[in-house]
């Protein structure tokens, strides 16, 4: 009876993880070096979902879970800033600083999509709730 609720909740958790990844990307939009202090731009994260068979409704309808949080390997944005501590010292790109290639527009569209998906799943929970309460009227 409650597996529908569990399936919808798994989607809520998954979409929230996606929003967290987007928040991390936007927070690190100007991060030019890593924890060790080496000049390495932040690479955007993205979340991969997969069907979760451990949460199963009658008939085998699975829930969803986060398979992994992947690190994208896009080329960084190069900016010429010779005075920057993370600027490249020598070579053809001397004086350039590698900035994370986080596209704000894409991130916000993704965030909107995740939010709408979240809302949709809350809507399904509402429907399930109403169905259960309506069924109780049979016996009342």
């Amino acid at each position: 009876m409650f597996s529908t609720l569990d399936i919808s909740t798994s989607a809520l958790v998954a979409q929230r993880t996606r929003v967290t990844a987007i928040a991390s990307n936007i927070a690190n939009v100007s991060t030019t070096h890593n924890e060790a202090g080496e000049a390495e731009p932040f690479q955007p994260r993205f979340v991969v979902f997969e069907a979760d068979n451990s949460i199963q409704g009658p008939g085998g309808a699975p829930g969803v879970k986060v398979a992994s949080v992947e690190i994208s390997n896009v080329e960084p944005n190069w900016k010429f800033q010779p005075g920057h501590p993370d600027a490249i010292k020598q070579g053809p790109r001397a004086g350039y600083v590698a900035y994370p290639n986080v596209d704000m527009t894409t991130e916000f569209v993704d965030a909107l999509e995740a939010t709408r998906a979240y809302e949709a799943n809350v809507g399904v929970i509402e429907v399930t709730k109403n169905l259960t309460q309506q069924s109780l009227k049979i016996i009342a």
């Binding site: 009876m1 409650f2 609720l5 569990d6 919808s8 909740t9 809520l12 958790v13 929230r16 929970i125 709730k129 259960t132 309460q133 109780l136 016996i139 009342a140």
Partner: peptide, 24 residues
């Protein structure tokens, strides 16, 4: 996770209501 917590509460509520209806 807030979503999981609220679902647990809702499940308990629905289960209790069902039990009460049977009892009635």
């Amino acid at each position: 996770n807030p979503a999981e917590v609220l679902t647990a509460v809702q499940k308990a509520d629905l289960a209790f209501r069902t039990m009460m209806q049977v009892r009635n």
